[in-house]
Write a protein that binds this DNA or RNA. Structure first.
Lengths: 232, 232
DNA sequence: TGCCATTATTGCGCTGGCGCAAAGCAAAAA
DNA sequence: TTTTTGCTTTGCGCCAGCGCAATAATGGCA
């Protein structure tokens, strides 16, 4: 039985990288996709590995981290189903610049660089889609760079929660659940601060009724309240 | 007389975006290039403008800045001849996300989105080159984001000077001149700190003989000294 | 049910770096 | 030359946020 067969069609068609491709290319990509599974704590790839595959997350959650020369880690992105990662394989880079770790049991489809490059050669639409994806990354990090350089911790954390909610938010009766099991430490790594400061801010916001803060679980009760914190 | 005719050939051929293109595409791009001049302080484009053109700097220096919602500015990049800017026009973004201002009298070649998109449609090599350029941006900002999030000001400023030297360094007998007229304020905007802290650090490094710090002019006397500051 | 490993909270002291304000300088303009 | 303008330096006070250390909560697991 082909893995993920029930969802293959949908998930490729819903991914921006694969938009507007001719049917034969899409079919080819479906055929060359290889399923990969990782248990909680497992790695899809690690920083420094030879760069070989691009992934599309089908089920589970993962985090993308980067390690500095002195071992300081930051969390660049936390992703749920439908997200691409390892897109950098579309370039001539040789090593993974980041690590992809499963936050829970996860499955992904993966493609080799060769398969993708062939497709890009044949099909300009694919190459242009890839360009969009890259450009979106570049802009996101420019933006986050500016925030980190110019804004105070409180605002940055508010922005971080809002971004997470928009990427992995799940509507609940009480509010929007950030559907990713992130610790205070990890939130700190995303917002550019420490676990302690994150904890203090979340506690404060909870006492104001803005959010619910649980263990690896945050529900935003009043998004507009956070927005006004984030924007001033 | 066609402007820049003496340099056109060289400058396109030396630009990574135009590498390995078939001669007819290159000729087409040469033909569709439009020269643009801006005096010191002039703008090639401003944040929020409709996104229309990509530029290749031929002479002069420019800076790329981004403005936050509260008017806090940061300096994303400072560029010299041979640098591309406005590459984001290759995507479907509608507004300029940044501002490009001439630090001195500058001339550039420019292309419309339509010209470039046509080229990308016809020529996969061009689209893949564009992908490389975007990916390089994305990685650079991921990297700088990490530095900003995890490193102290001293290190970040050292990194900033080294990066500037590698991008716009000119060898002099006394050391490597950073060939860009940047104020302390602007260096601060790049490194994520204030003009005051930049001034204090530069003074300190000058007294240690690591650099020469003049008005809008810095010469790195001992690159390895800065490197050891930057890396720890 | 109770145990254990993680994760989260919070009091406390400390300091890196911010930012005002004033003075000093250098280059360009008049 | 003098003036003007913009850049740079530096003293000083201050506080946001860091990070240790101790404690408490939570959830998985036997």
């Amino acid at each position: 039985m082909p893995p993920f067969s029930a969802d293959d069609r949908d998930i490729l068609a819903e991914t921006s990288l694969f938009q507007d491709l001719p049917p034969e290319e899409l079919a080819q990509l479906r055929a060359s996709a290889r399923p990969v599974h990782r248990p909680r704590g497992g790695y899809f790839f690690m920083q420094g590995d030879p760069l070989e595959r691009m992934y599309l997350l089908v089920t589970g959650r993962i985090k993308i981290t980067q390690l500095g020369p002195d071992g300081q880690q930051i969390l660049l992105r936390a992703l749920g189903p439908g997200s691409l990662f390892g897109v950098v394989v579309l370039t001539q880079a040789k090593e993974c610049p980041v690590t992809a770790e499963a936050l829970e049991d996860s499955t992904a489809l993966s493609w080799t660089r060769a398969d993708l490059m062939d497709c890009a050669q044949r099909c300009p639409t694919f190459a242009l889609n890839a360009l969009q994806v890259m450009a979106a990354h570049a802009q996101e990090f420019q933006e986050r760079f500016r925030q980190l350089a110019t804004e105070r911790v409180e605002r940055r954390l508010a922005h971080t929660l809002l971004r997470l909610a928009s990427q992995a938010g799940r509507k609940l009766p009480e509010g929007v659940l950030i559907d990713l099991p992130l610790t205070r430490q990890e939130l700190g790594e995303m917002a550019g601060t420490t676990q302690y400061t994150v904890s203090r801010l979340l506690t404060q916001w909870e006492s104001q009724g803005l959010i619910y803060a649980g263990r690896e679980r945050i529900i935003i009760r009043h998004p507009h309240g956070l927005v006004s914190l984030a924007e001033g």
